[in-house]
Amino acid sequence: MKYIYDLHRTMLKQNLILVYEGEFTQEITKSVLAMAERNMDAFGEESGIKRKVFNVMVECLQNICKHAEGFDVEMYGHNSAIFMIGKHKDEYVITSGNAIANDRVSDMTRKLEQINALDKDGLKELYKEVIKNGSLSEKGGAGLGFIDMARKSGQKLSYDFEPINDHLSFFSLRTTISRSNNG
C-alpha cells in the first residue's frame, strides 16, 4: 500500500492541487473546471489570474476530449489521459498528457514550434489569420487552442512526445501562468 503514500508525497512535492486520470468527456471537463474554480476561490485567487487559468484549462481539456487516442481501450477507456494543475508561489502550471497517433507528431511539432517562435503581436496576428480563414475541423476544433493557450500564458508552451508503440505517442503539454499581475 506504500504507493498511496508515495503518490500523496509526489503530489505535495509537485504542489499539485488537482490531478485527474481517466476518460475525458464534456461532463468530466465541467467537473474538473468546477473543482479548480472552487479551489482558486477558496484561497481568494485574483480574478484575472483565475480567468487565465480557467481559459487554458478549457482548451487543454477540450483538446483531450477531441483528440486523445485510446490505448488498451478495454482496460483504460476510450481516451485515457492525465490532467494536472500545480500551484506554486509565483505561477500555476497546467499539464496534460494523452496518446496521439504517430502520424500527427510532425504536424503538431511544426504548429507548436511556430507558436513558440512568435511574440505577443505575432500570436495576435496568427490568431486573427486562423479565425478568419480557417474552418472548423470535423471534430469541431477551430485550430486556435494552442495559440490561445500561448496568448493567455504569455510564456512558451513546453511539450514532449514519448513513443508508446508503432502507432501511438504520448503527448505531454505544459502551460505556465504567472501569478503576478504584470504577466
Binding site: R51, I131, L136, G141, I147
Partner: peptide, 12 residues
Amino acid sequence: EYFNTASSKLIL
C-alpha cells in the same frame, strides 16, 4: 464572461 476557441469561431 468566457468563451472557448471553438465558440470564438462561431461568434465571428
